[in-house]
Design a protein around this nucleic acid. Structure first.
Lengths: 341, 341
DNA sequence: GAAATGAGCGAAAGCCATTTCGAGCAAGTT
DNA sequence: AACTTGCTCGAAATGGCTTTCGCTCATTTC
């Protein structure tokens, strides 16, 4: 037999009612703990339902109630490293209640996204969370959607939408402030693709922190890609050109790993001689390096949870506001940065 | 106003019919491209539907059709590294059609799992894919589920269920065969937690390959954890105790990364002096190391796709069989292993 | 003992879309 | 002119559930 094909169709309410010897209406009332049902009758119905392992048909219920208890999660890049924690946070917040999540991956393709959006609306989801793969603004789904929409990670380009995104500016500032508080003054920055808003925002924050301390970046920020490989190359270049550098703020943990490699190759000891700070707090990378990597954590799971909460609120008719909200990030201190002296 | 609350309820078929001046039945036929509708009438209906941006209510349709076009994806550990590709593969296979995916994360908790299962059944999913976090058998959901169930990655402990899991035995064999084909004869094995079936299966495969070549493992397999840290420590120990080793088969890419680090520290050149092969082909790790890491790829996305396909087939009434199927894995050769001489 | 009260239960209307089947009507046939 | 044929279209049933409203019968009250 095919895997679990228990021929028997799922029991319906009328099956239960018949077995309990009551009307459908009464059975419904009994199962939903409404009044106007005698205790004995209720017992009988409950037993019948149990015996038939009755599960109410959520569709029929939803059809009637006008709400489905489902939410759509529209991601653009499922495999992405940032998608997952957000997704988990959201799933977490929803899963706790009686809400189920429809997962859609548009693979970064607008056509696919439109297609999935149609499917979600057709399934009458009560709300939608749109998760993007970068912190760059993305096209809005529009204001015509009949259910609340919240944008997570990638904000919408329409200020009338509600967007939640990590605060990269403050992240950059915190990273550099931490380095300064460790007694470093000759700080350089190696980061990834300059076309990413995340890269620019972090630099802006970093510069603000430096300026507040009367310092300047050593050299210009070094841009290329978010890889370990680039981290190695960039660090080699940097340490050759500016050997006086005593701290490097890296745009990602991957880059930081590369930097650590090069530092070791060149005999620069981390953190004594050179402090290194990463970004993203990707624990597979940050906790396995030598030394372990100080990093900025964007609290993505938290972000996902909040997005879900906003959708909940909107469903309940609460005004959830609009505009792009920058959620707090967090400094995680590990061995790659310690106070000098 | 709250994010996108277009007050207007979604339009229903009868709205469309009224606007087009036809009966509900005719409207339905027009929209579904059935016969028995005059061209002019159809045009009128389509225009009305467009103007109201009508989306058919999938629930009402499902109620009637007896199938919902939804599938449940029940994972036990969403953040897990192996969950994602499988999930993507499945989402991929489903998303192509008109099937939507309910995502449930049980967080490895049996109670939560049961809860989610109830929710899925209540929503009348047409099928379920259960994704586990290890390749160790997991408790079956039972044979009483009224829809087809396929187990992915973690097989069910009930042979009547259909399970798809990567072929770790062959993976281990392929890894060692590759090392042997590179002219290596003194091969050691560093792996993770011995309680994992994956660890044991790979060892068994490795031993089979060695035996076939008249070789033996250098020392005993080294067990501990699936981390880079352990890889470093184990390699140090191994190379001290058995300096003659000319190849190390690692139970994961993380471990392999640690091994590479230690090899570099001890001045052993990879791959000339020491070949290293990883497992999992986690590209963030395997393509960013020096040298890049040869590894075994479990084709997880493929596995996810297959699981989805099986569920499809079962829904269509095809007998999808039972038992645990071991899906082929793939050797990805990179710089950490080259033929000697 | 008759009327008022209320607890317990059931009939039926709805939610939304699909589908069957029959009605209406015009054109074509004999 | 009467009849058949074929094309359009609509009424109504269907699916599973909730909810309203009215009915029945037992209990209470005067």
């Amino acid at each position: 037999m095919a895997a679990n094909e228990t021929g028997s169709k799922a029991a319906t309410l009328s099956d239960v009612a018949r077995r309990a010897g009551v009307s459908i209406a009464t059975a419904s009332k009994a199962l939903n703990n409404r009044d106007d049902v005698a205790v004995a009758t209720r017992q009988r119905v409950l037993r019948a339902a149990d015996e038939l392992s009755f599960t109410p048909n959520a569709m029929a219920k939803g059809l009637l109630a006008g709400r489905t208890g489902t939410v759509g999660l529209l991601t653009s890049d499922l495999e992405g490293r940032f998608m997952i924690p957000i997704l988990m946070g959201a799933e977490d917040a929803f899963g706790a209640g009686q809400v189920s999540v429809f997962l859609c991956d548009a693979r970064g393709d607008a056509i696919r996204e439109q297609h999935h959006l149609r499917a979600l609306l057709s399934r009458r989801v009560d709300g939608i969370i749109v998760v993007g793969r970068q912190t760059d603004p993305r096209p809005s789904l529009g204001q015509e959607i009949p259910v609340p929409v919240v944008y997570a990670y990638a904000p919408s380009d329409d200020p009338r939408d509600l967007s939640l995104t990590p605060d990269n500016y403050t992240g950059g500032r915190m990273a550099v402030e931490h380095l300064i508080s460790c007694g470093r003054t000759r700080i350089a920055h190696i980061t990834g693709d300059p076309s990413y808003a995340a890269a620019q925002d972090r630099i802006a924050g970093a510069r603000a922190a430096l300026e507040a301390a009367g310092l300047e970046l050593v050299g210009e920020p070094m841009f290329a890609e978010w890889t370990e490989h680039w981290g190695r190359d960039a660090a080699a270049l940097l340490l050759q050109r500016h050997p006086e550098v005593d701290a490097i703020f890296c745009g990602s943990d991957q880059i930081a790993r590369g930097v650590l490699d090069t530092a070791r190759d060149l005999g620069r000891s981390v953190p004594e001689d050179l402090a290194v700070i990463g970004y993203d707090n990707w624990e597979v990378l940050s906790t396995n390096s030598r030394p372990q990597l100080t990093s900025i954590d964007a609290n993505l799971q938290q972000l996902g949870r909040q997005a879900a909460q906003r959708v909940f609120d909107a469903i309940d008719g609460v005004d959830i506001g609009e505009g792009t909200h920058h959620l707090p990030v967090r400094l995680v201190i590990r061995g790659s940065t310690i106070p000098r002296r």
